[in-house]
């Protein structure tokens, strides 16, 4: 048939590290409806919109933030939360520098799913390293009806050695802190690479073959 023999035309994903025009790539994952998009918008636009669309696949926002007086361009990838999309979403994991795990404190299942999301992410990120920069966000603390206590969530995070933040995208509690902690952490891990960027800003693709860039 037409398809069977032909090689796939799709290249195997973008090589994020190669043509990096951003300094950090952060990805936010977690179960459906925990408020990933809201957190992201609260952080980037300082606004809480009530009527979000479901995120299918991924959507991306960027923000420049200052870490230790150094401007840092962060690209944040927002992903769809439905289990089924996980195989598709993992395409987006590539080249991440930091990962934000989100759950909803009023939804026990979303907390229980953290393990899966984390493992799935670590499996896809090569090389697999346990101390990959991560933070956990327990969202929706503005709602009274909690199903996951602060103690349980903190314990889980402590065991995995991940910083834990109780946040509210709606009331803008702790959101920026969580993002900035992750950014700093990612920065420390990749300090070496990052410094080569700063000292040699013209050599944008230090270890790749030179690419023609259109300006």
């Amino acid at each position: 048939s037409l398809q069977s023999g032909a090689p796939p035309l799709i290249p195997q994903g973008p090589s994020m590290d190669a043509s990096k025009k951003v300094d950090l790539k952060i990805i936010i994952i977690g179960a459906l409806g925990v408020g990933k998009t809201s957190l992201l918008h609260q952080y980037v636009h300082k606004r809480f919109y009530e009527d979000y669309r479901t995120t299918l696949g991924a959507s991306i926002l960027t923000k420049v933030l200052a870490v230790d007086n150094t401007p840092l361009k962060v690209q944040i990838w927002d992903t769809g939360g439905q289990e089924r999309f996980r195989s598709m979403v993992s395409t987006f994991y590539k080249g991440s520098d930091g990962c934000m795990l989100a759950f909803d404190v009023t939804d026990r299942e979303s907390f229980e799913a953290l393990d899966n999301w984390r493992n799935d992410f670590l499996d896809k990120v090569i090389p697999r390293e346990q101390d990959f920069p991560m933070v956990v966000l327990g969202n929706k603390i503005d709602i009274c009806d909690r199903q996951v206590s602060k103690e349980i969530a903190s314990a889980w995070c402590k065991e995995k050695d991940i910083p834990y933040f109780e946040v509210s995208a709606k009331n803008n509690i702790n959101v920026a802190e969580a993002f900035e902690t992750l950014a700093k952490q990612a920065l420390v891990t990749y300090k070496g690479i990052f410094e080569s960027y700063l000292t040699d800003s013209i050599k944008l693709t230090p270890y790749d073959k030179p690419k023609k860039r259109c300006c």
């Binding site: 799709i10 973008p14 090589s15 043509s19 479901t54 299918l56 991924a58 395409t91």
Partner: peptide, 19 residues
């Protein structure tokens, strides 16, 4: 530039653009 349809076209086709 590695901008493959997987990155943007899934919501297009899966929902026939209603998303």
């Amino acid at each position: 530039i590695g901008f493959i349809p997987d990155l943007y076209a899934i919501p297009w086709f899966l929902t026939m653009f209603t998303h």
